[in-house]
Design a protein around this nucleic acid. Structure first.
Lengths: 229, 229
DNA sequence: GACGCCTAGATTGTATACGATTTTTTGCTT
DNA sequence: AAGCAAAAAATCGTATACAATCTAGGCGTC
């Protein structure tokens, strides 16, 4: 079956590379992404660089400002709230759908992810930390995949990626891994066919992540969009 | 506050025009949208036309095939199912959120929409029918706006637009308006602060639309993507 | 010394140009 | 007349070119 011939190889590749960099927080919110720089970096013309940046702006990961250029998105506290509100709204539903379709293979795969996640938490260093961030999101994404709904899957892709930005900006505890065991609990609940409990745990988990945020308005930000560079 | 300076005027305009044409079904699924034609039609270069088509492909309204061009999306039965599954998943949540934030002004606005919708149903002619299709979707969109979550709002934009395509392809009853009174019932339930009832009605309403579809696989479609033109 | 204006450089917005791929047409063969 | 092959036309993919806009630094005036 035709999986994905949507985007022209070049653009897709750049888009994915930049997105990974944003999600893994190698690129900080507010960083300027000039079309020429991106193009040179990937040895393509501005045309493709621009297309990639446009694509990322549709996902909410970069914001392009007319005649000023593209920047890694700098979500406002209000945006952050909406992102997590959206997750609270959709993730229980996705979880329910996934639970009805889940196979033993899927469960094994989920546990594999959990194991990997746990391993990374133990390790030291920037690289491990970044991989851990990605792994944490991958768990939620995996549930969306299992749900079998490509549309919800793409939506979750966007939400998880944007969440990473929000946590980078407003997260307090240096370790975002506090919720790792909660992932395991959710899987257990699914195994026990206790959907209500699984949903409850999921909502609790999301609330837990959100509770670690400090969403108070940044100092005198906003009078000139502050430190946009 | 800065509302929307996201897209360069030209592209945005083209994108909206084509999207409206698709949603109002002036453009049939599968119609080829060549970059040159679009560009000439709007008196801009292929560059902008291409950007607009790319944007629409991110919304799932057009599908671009490498080296072949862009076509008005032709959702498969499976895609159709997923679109409505997504709506069943998110619309109750949006409704609940909207109900807690709704103001008397909002309610008046909703009733205004209902009135307009009813008026169009009475009228004859293609134009009225098209306006009616749009109005029907606008009701669901209005709820998303009231919910105050820009992210869910954009998601609903996409879902409603894609639903229009699905109905164009698989809808059986010539009138899609069968569900008009159901909109009114939902508003009434909201006014009565009966959220559970409102959600029940919403799910019923979505199921009602879906029931009017004939999602059996089209004849021998798929061996060559069939009538792509 | 501070403020404002003005010019120079850099960056984005849009159009055009050229090579690559696909589709259609043409014309030959069977 | 039907089928196939090669050439012609159309269309897409990408790069480059030029115009418009923004940013920064310098100069002059107050």
């Amino acid at each position: 079956m035709a999986a994905d011939d949507s985007a022209e190889t070049g653009t897709q590749q750049i888009r994915d590379a930049i997105r990974d960099a944003i999600v893994e927080r190698r690129l900080s919110p507010g960083t300027k992404l000039s079309e020429s720089d991106v193009g040179n970096l990937f040895n393509v013309s501005r045309t493709l660089a621009r297309a990639a940046l446009q694509a990322l702006s549709y996902e909410g990961l970069v914001s392009v400002e007319k005649n000023r250029g593209a920047f890694v998105a700098y979500p406002s506290p209000e945006e952050a709230r909406q992102i997590f509100a959206a997750r609270r709204l959709v993730e229980p539903g996705i979880l329910r759908e996934a639970a009805t379709r889940i196979t033993p293979t899927d469960i094994r795969h989920l546990k594999q992810l959990l194991l990997e996640e746990g391993r990374l938490i133990g390790e030291r260093g920037q690289t491990a930390r970044r991989a851990e961030i990605k792994a944490s999101g991958d768990f939620h994404l995996a549930l969306a995949v299992i749900s079998g709904n490509a549309i919800m899957q793409r939506f979750m892709d966007e939400l998880v990626a944007r969440s990473s930005l929000v946590i980078a900006l407003y997260g307090q505890s240096t370790v975002s891994s506090c919720g790792h065991s909660e992932h395991g609990d959710i899987v257990t609940a699914i195994e026990n066919k206790d959907l209500d409990e699984a949903c409850r745990l999921m909502l609790h988990h999301i609330a837990h992540i959100e509770a670690d945020l400090d969403l108070r308005q940044r100092k005198n930000l906003g009078l000139k969009e502050a430190l946009k560079r």
